[in-house]
Write a protein that binds this DNA or RNA. Structure first.
Lengths: 331, 331
DNA sequence: CTGTTAGCGCGTTCAC
DNA sequence: GTGAACGCGCTAACAG
């Protein structure tokens, strides 16, 4: 067993080995300064031989730039967020940034803690999917370049931030209109009421009914518990008591529980509407209309806006609204 | 619009405001030293009023401890990895660590780059799902506490690392045995050959056949392209030319393409075997046997082993092998 | 072209 | 109990 040297060489070690000052090493390795080609070559060789790599943390405190972006999301296990993160990760790699991801599980306390830790880490910027529960982001956005995604903050007395959101209302509106076109007449909806997003989706449902001259029946509108424990029961109500021929599930957690019940009860004919496309949906028994969120695009726009604000913290605020795409599986 | 002060207060600012030295502020805020209760109270109050938070980056260079763990995985979009990451995130939160996640997309070049960047960030430890393509980790594991997950490194001349892997061979062996028990006799398998993991899964398939006295027919063993472009064609071969009544897909990417073809061709009776459970699987038309990997457990064990090695870098090597759990959907 | 000096923000001697 | 001085590893300013 080779007992390798555990010490990590510093710029000082390289300087000593090369018989020059640390400043010269720094310049030689960072390229952009004037150093004789000869000494540069020599220093590069020695650095390589010693396995020297600059300590990015030390550089960060000196440069007041960490090249780290803090990302705050609800959970990594939801496809919407994994896809956004995947998109952000790719952009980060291309631009030499690192991502630190924190999750809230929709709990404002976790969100506060997450933002606090990230700012203490001196991140160069923040990308946040806020729970929106009255957290005051005024000081944060004034000090750190910040882009909100998915949901707008509700309580910020500053315009020094950007945002990229999805037109959820329009999404459900298109969604439900398609379902009606495909023959649905008694359409139930189950949402979860946690976020503003969810309410927007409900509004879209109502608008679609209005546009199609279908009266809004409040008994067809169900809100589930935050832990989704009652979704299956609500599904039964919609199916059997209220004779629905179609159900809209406003997110995938709800959708899976709806399907669990309809499969159990061996329901053959029902139309399903939902948000957030997953490739698994093509194997579901029913016709299904999906409002797919532009996750990759959200990542791209958020990253771009963040880069711009990092470059110019006082630039004008930009709020971008993106649209969903409807995907249809007709049985 | 309130124009808030953009400057982030440092320990120096607090000291000046309180009329004490920075040393006293540091002591007062970090608790553990001897400071008069009076001045401590006062300093804490002032710090709070000023919105002071310690600069963790600066602290890191001083303490030679970043409280950051680097995680290297294949992709964030695969459920196996998201579940492991979710588990790790929870443990990190509980222990005041941050996670920086880098992805390889199974490309050794990306892996090398990722590890390089993370070590330059002076992470306190590494958790790595290596592509296993001959990367020499000797120097890395000698310098940084490292735990490998999912796959063992192939080329390390040191035992200063730990690992937690899954018994893939046993997984497929159990999986296929169940399929046989449920009536399958002509069982095809499609795997992707990229990683050692995949080969182990193939071996388990062969062992299961042996144990059940079914001759191994090499023509039923298919390896797909890395981009999975030929999976659907291979599925057709297994179905129509080779008359399979069961197909094993060694990961979810393959599985989805197999299903795509069987649905297209309106296949009614076929048995499916696969790795990595997803809740969506309960809505698939066919009987299905899944070897579920213990993702949460993998995260827990990996984190624990890492903590132990951080505490004692010279401790004895531990290689943990965990088992899959079989989940069955009988139509 | 290169070395010396200074300082980023912090925690820790070592005096008083 | 408190302050002055030092150093973590690095880059930038100023000399020469």
């Amino acid at each position: 067993m080779v007992e390798s040297n555990k010490e990590i060489p510093t710029i000082k070690d390289v300087a000593k080995q090369a018989g020059v000052s640390v400043a010269t090493v720094s310049r030689a390795l960072n390229g952009n300064q004037r150093v004789s080609a000869e000494t540069r070559k020599k220093i590069q060789q020695i650095a390589k031989d010693m396995g020297y790599h600059p300590n990015l943390i030390a550089r960060s405190v000196r440069m007041k730039k960490t090249s780290i972006i803090g990302v705050v999301i609800s959970t990594v296990t939801a496809s919407f967020f994994t896809e956004v993160i995947d998109s952000l990760t790719e952009l980060a790699e291309d631009n030499d940034y690192q991502l630190i991801i924190a999750r809230t599980n929709e709990n404002p306390k976790n969100e506060k803690k997450a933002v606090e830790v990230l700012t203490q880490q001196m991140v160069d910027g923040l990308i946040i999917a806020t729970t929106g529960h009255e957290i005051d982001y005024t000081n944060i956005v004034n000090r750190f370049p910040t882009v909100f995604i998915d949901r707008m903050p509700t309580n910020v007395n500053s315009s020094k931030f950007d945002a990229v959101v999805v037109n959820n209302e329009d999404g459900t509106k298109k969604l439900v209109s398609f379902m009606i076109k495909f023959g649905a007449s008694q359409i139930g909806i189950i949402n979860s009421e946690v976020t503003a997003t969810q309410n927007q989706r409900l509004n879209g449902y109502k608008k679609a009914l209005q546009v199609n001259a279908i009266p809004i029946d409040e008994s067809l509108i169900k809100k589930s518990q935050v832990d989704y424990s009652d979704v299956e029961g609500l599904t039964s109500q919609l199916l059997f008591n209220l004779r629905c021929d179609a159900i809209v599930a406003t997110d995938n957690e709800i959708l899976q529980r709806v399907l669990k019940r309809t499969y159990e009860r061996n329901i053959k004919d029902i139309q399903i509407g939902c948000f957030d496309y997953s490739p698994w949906m093509q194997f579901i028994r029913y016709p299904i209309v999906v409002a797919a969120q532009p996750t990759v695009q959200i990542g791209k726009v958020a990253f771009k806006l963040l880069m711009q604000r990092i470059k110019n913290p006082d630039k004008a605020q930009e709020i971008r609204e993106l649209n969903t795409t409807i995907k249809i599986k007709t049985k």
